[in-house]
Deep mutational scan, measured.
Amino acid sequence: ETEYTFDDKREADRAAKEAQNNGLRVHVTKDGNRWKVRID
């Protein structure tokens, strides 16, 4: 399990989409004014 934090939602969405394309499970959550992408 890996977690990334992004300031920009577009960057978070791009990272999530890339991980999904690689067959990974992805969870995107909002943390204040930042975005967390957790990859299982």
Rank of each mutant, 00 (worst) to 15 (best):
E1M: 15
E1T: 14
E1A: 15
E1D: 11
E1S: 14
E1R: 13
T2V: 14
T2I: 14
T2K: 12
T2S: 10
T2G: 11
T2F: 13
E3S: 09
E3W: 14
E3G: 04
E3H: 07
E3C: 12
E3R: 04
Y4L: 13
Y4E: 04
Y4T: 05
Y4C: 12
T5P: 02
T5N: 06
T5M: 13
T5R: 05
T5A: 06
T5E: 09
T5S: 09
F6I: 02
F6R: 00
F6A: 01
F6E: 01
F6V: 03
F6Q: 01
F6K: 01
F6G: 01
F6L: 02
F6T: 02
D7Y: 12
D7Q: 08
D7M: 11
D8K: 06
D8R: 07
D8I: 05
D8F: 07
D8T: 15
K9Y: 14
K9Q: 08
K9M: 06
K9C: 04
K9E: 11
K9G: 04
K9A: 06
K9V: 08
K9F: 14
K9L: 07
K9T: 02
R10E: 15
R10M: 12
R10S: 13
R10G: 12
R10N: 13
E11T: 08
E11H: 07
E11Q: 10
E11D: 14
E11L: 09
E11N: 06
E11W: 06
E11R: 05
A12R: 01
A12G: 01
A12E: 00
A12D: 01
A12S: 02
A12F: 02
A12H: 00
D13L: 15
D13F: 15
R14L: 10
R14D: 08
R14E: 11
R14Y: 08
R14T: 07
R14N: 09
R14S: 07
R14K: 13
A15W: 15
A15N: 03
A15V: 15
A15E: 03
A15M: 14
A15I: 13
A15H: 08
A15Q: 05
A16I: 10
A16N: 02
A16P: 01
A16S: 05
A16T: 05
K17M: 13
K17R: 13
K17V: 10
K17C: 10
K17W: 12
K17S: 09
K17A: 14
K17D: 07
K17N: 09
E18D: 09
E18W: 14
A19D: 01
A19Q: 04
A19R: 02
A19P: 01
Q20P: 00
Q20A: 11
Q20H: 09
Q20W: 11
Q20L: 13
Q20F: 10
Q20M: 14
N21W: 08
N21G: 10
N22M: 14
N22E: 09
N22R: 15
N22F: 05
N22A: 14
N22W: 06
N22G: 06
N22K: 14
G23D: 02
G23C: 08
G23T: 01
G23Q: 03
L24I: 05
L24V: 04
R25S: 09
R25Q: 08
R25D: 05
R25T: 11
R25L: 08
R25P: 04
R25V: 12
R25G: 05
V26D: 00
V26A: 14
V26H: 02
V26G: 03
V26S: 05
V26K: 01
H27L: 10
H27I: 14
H27Y: 12
H27P: 00
H27K: 11
V28F: 03
V28I: 12
V28H: 00
V28L: 08
T29I: 14
T29W: 15
T29M: 12
T29N: 04
T29Y: 15
K30E: 06
K30T: 07
K30W: 14
K30D: 03
K30G: 04
K30N: 07
K30S: 07
D31N: 05
D31I: 11
D31Y: 06
D31E: 13
D31C: 07
D31R: 04
G32D: 05
G32S: 02
G32P: 00
G32Q: 04
G32V: 02
G32K: 04
G32I: 01
N33G: 10
N33S: 08
N33F: 06
N33T: 08
N33R: 06
N33H: 10
N33M: 06
N33A: 07
R34E: 08
R34S: 10
R34N: 07
R34A: 08
R34Y: 10
R34Q: 13
R34T: 10
R34K: 13
R34V: 13
W35N: 00
W35R: 00
W35K: 00
W35S: 00
K36W: 05
K36D: 02
K36P: 02
K36I: 15
K36M: 08
K36E: 04
K36H: 10
K36T: 10
K36Y: 09
V37M: 04
V37F: 01
V37G: 01
V37E: 01
V37Q: 00
V37Y: 00
V37P: 01
V37K: 01
R38G: 04
R38N: 09
R38I: 15
R38P: 01
R38T: 15
R38D: 04
R38S: 12
R38V: 15
R38W: 14
R38L: 12
R38F: 13
I39F: 07
I39A: 03
I39S: 02
I39T: 05
D40F: 15
D40H: 12
D40E: 15
D40V: 14
D40W: 15
D40Y: 15
D40I: 15
D40N: 10
